[in-house]
Design a protein around this nucleic acid. Structure first.
Length: 110
DNA sequence: AGAGTGACTGCAT
DNA sequence: AATGCAGCCACTC
């Protein structure tokens, strides 16, 4: 009786993001087929805090590699989590973003 | 049932 | 090149 929702789909992809890598909302949206709705992905992430198992939302950043979700995590929690996985973050921005970028539409397409 | 909100992105100026 | 505006879909009140 699973009341599946678009959110569940987003969570599933987010949980597949390997440690030390990050992706963008648009990339996930595109993989889900709703590339025009990148907002929905971020919106789903907001509810990810209530998702089980927990979703590594800290690995999801905006198109610029900016930690837009940091404010929602509270303090520097997001940046701390990323650095703990080997991702370098400076001024709320992911360093070597294109290097650590993980595109589900490509990685999961294999 | 209708209107509002939102952790974004792309195009236009 | 940089800034501003509009679009988009699902969820909640």
């Amino acid at each position: 009786m699973p009341d599946y929702s678009f959110f569940d789909n987003v969570y599933d992809v987010a949980r597949q993001i390997p440690a030390g890598r990050v992706t963008s909302y648009g990339a996930i949206a595109h993989y889900l087929g709703t590339k025009g709705s990148s907002r929905m992905v971020g919106y789903a992430m907001q509810a990810s805090g209530a998702a089980h198992p927990p979703v590594p939302a800290h690995r999801v950043v905006n198109r610029q590699g900016l930690l837009t979700a940091k404010a929602h995590f509270g303090g520097d929690t997001m940046q701390r989590l990323l650095e703990a996985e080997g991702i370098k973050v400076k001024d709320d921005q992911v360093q070597d973003f294109k290097t650590v970028f993980w595109d589900p539409s490509i990685e999961l397409a294999l």
